[in-house]
Simulated scan of single mutants.
Amino acid sequence: MSLLSGKEKLAPIPSFNTIIRGFWGGSISIFILLILGKLTNHLWIMAPFGATCVILYTVAQSPLAQPRNVIFGHFISAFIGMCFLKIFGVNFLSIAFSVGGAIALMQFFRCVHPPAGANPLVILLTANTFHYEWSFLALPVLLGAIVLVLVAYCVNNFKTESKWPTYGLALWKSKSE
């Protein structure tokens, strides 16, 4: 089948309530991060959080949208970006390998979150205009991701029968699971 054949089956149009939930969830999430930034004079937001909202509100039952994936995925990926920046500086290899390293560690720790894969790119590609300190891992990365999860908990459980999240934050499952 050709990419341009037009014979592919499109995903069904989501229900009106699902579309509205996505609109409000994404809007409220980003608005809260912006307000927190204004109130504290600290950065609470970064570009990959927009993509995180897409996943949190359109495929909330996916493993990619679960709290551990969002929080740990963003943290691990940004940590790798910071390590590559501080150790190797900004160059083609550090940019490329930081993304690969972030993917590998998210897989190893079972917290894959695709938007987090952009974190090393954000860090390394903007390092010449923004001076990154290790505190960037706390704000906006960790606390921002936690806020997104808290808002998603409220929005994704508001007047719905499906409950979110489908699993919690545990780093490792026991051997019996």
Results as ranks from 00 to 15, higher is better:
residue 122 V to S: 09
residue 97 F to E: 02
residue 134 W to L: 15
residue 132 Y to N: 06
residue 85 L to V: 12
residue 136 F to T: 01
residue 130 F to Q: 13
residue 98 S to H: 03
residue 121 L to I: 12
residue 108 F to P: 08
residue 109 F to T: 07
residue 129 T to A: 13
residue 95 I to Y: 04
residue 143 L to Q: 07
residue 87 I to K: 14
residue 110 R to E: 12
residue 108 F to N: 08
residue 98 S to D: 06
residue 81 G to I: 06
residue 125 L to S: 09
residue 91 N to G: 11
residue 120 P to W: 02
residue 100 G to Y: 10
residue 129 T to V: 14
residue 128 N to L: 09
residue 118 A to P: 05
residue 117 G to K: 10
residue 104 A to Q: 12
residue 86 K to F: 15
residue 96 A to D: 07
residue 87 I to L: 15
residue 82 M to S: 02
residue 132 Y to C: 04
residue 129 T to W: 03
residue 125 L to R: 00
residue 119 N to I: 03
residue 116 A to C: 10
residue 132 Y to W: 10
residue 99 V to G: 00
residue 99 V to E: 01
residue 136 F to A: 03
residue 99 V to P: 01
residue 102 A to R: 01
residue 126 T to N: 12
residue 126 T to V: 11
residue 111 C to G: 08
residue 125 L to W: 00
residue 127 A to W: 00
residue 121 L to M: 13
residue 124 L to V: 08
residue 132 Y to A: 08
residue 120 P to L: 02
residue 136 F to M: 04
residue 142 L to H: 08
residue 103 I to M: 11
residue 103 I to H: 08
residue 108 F to S: 13
residue 105 L to S: 08
residue 118 A to Q: 04
residue 105 L to M: 13
residue 85 L to W: 10
residue 112 V to K: 03
residue 109 F to Q: 10
residue 108 F to E: 09
residue 92 F to S: 13
residue 126 T to S: 14
residue 106 M to P: 03
residue 87 I to P: 08
residue 101 G to F: 11
residue 90 V to N: 09
residue 101 G to Q: 07
residue 141 V to G: 02
residue 104 A to V: 11
residue 133 E to D: 15
residue 114 P to Q: 10
residue 129 T to S: 14
residue 136 F to L: 07
residue 134 W to P: 01
residue 81 G to C: 08
residue 134 W to Q: 09
residue 113 H to N: 10
residue 132 Y to G: 04
residue 117 G to N: 11
residue 136 F to P: 00
residue 89 G to R: 10
residue 94 S to M: 04
residue 107 Q to W: 09
residue 138 A to I: 15
residue 114 P to V: 01
residue 107 Q to E: 13
residue 105 L to I: 02
residue 116 A to K: 00
residue 88 F to S: 06
residue 121 L to H: 01
residue 122 V to L: 14
residue 125 L to G: 04
residue 105 L to N: 07
residue 117 G to S: 11
residue 126 T to P: 00
residue 119 N to A: 12
residue 108 F to Q: 14
residue 99 V to F: 05
residue 103 I to D: 06
residue 105 L to T: 09
residue 90 V to D: 07
residue 141 V to Q: 05
residue 116 A to V: 06
residue 107 Q to T: 06
residue 106 M to W: 13
residue 114 P to H: 05
residue 125 L to N: 06
residue 82 M to A: 05
residue 97 F to R: 00
residue 118 A to W: 02
residue 137 L to V: 11
residue 94 S to G: 09
residue 131 H to S: 15
residue 142 L to D: 05
residue 89 G to E: 09
residue 123 I to L: 13
residue 127 A to N: 01
residue 141 V to M: 06
residue 86 K to R: 14
residue 102 A to M: 04
residue 87 I to W: 15
residue 107 Q to G: 00
residue 108 F to W: 15
residue 135 S to P: 02
residue 96 A to L: 14
residue 128 N to G: 14
residue 109 F to M: 12
residue 102 A to I: 03
residue 144 G to Y: 02
residue 85 L to T: 09
residue 116 A to Q: 02
residue 85 L to Y: 11
residue 83 C to R: 00
residue 83 C to D: 00
residue 82 M to E: 07
residue 91 N to H: 09
residue 97 F to D: 01
residue 110 R to F: 07
residue 96 A to N: 09
residue 129 T to H: 13
residue 138 A to G: 14
residue 92 F to W: 15
residue 142 L to A: 11
residue 98 S to Q: 09
residue 86 K to Q: 15
residue 95 I to A: 10
residue 113 H to Q: 12
